[in-house]
């Protein structure tokens, strides 16, 4: 079995990008329970089944 070349993205690109985004405020950790309880996304968080008017 060969090493999958596309693993480059998941091994070397995504993790540092995620850390960077978190530290730079381009990603955040929101309390999931609150979101699910209210069935509404936080103010500026979209979810695939949440629709908004444009």
């Amino acid at each position: 079995m060969r090493y999958p070349i596309w693993a480059f993205f998941f091994v070397l690109v995504m993790p540092p990008f995620a850390v960077h985004a978190l530290l730079a405020g381009k990603a955040r950790i929101a309390p999931d329970s609150a979101i699910m309880a209210s069935y509404e996304a936080p103010q500026d968080v979209y979810f695939s089944r949440v629709t908004t008017s444009r």
Binding site: F9, F17, A21, K26, I29, D32
Partner: peptide, 23 residues
């Protein structure tokens, strides 16, 4: 998102989608 509530900015999602597309 379900495990720890991680939410990316849409900009980050798009940039990473672009990188995936190039690769």
């Amino acid at each position: 998102f379900h495990a720890i509530g991680l939410v990316y900015s849409l900009h980050v999602v798009e940039i990473l989608s672009g990188l995936i597309g190039f690769f």
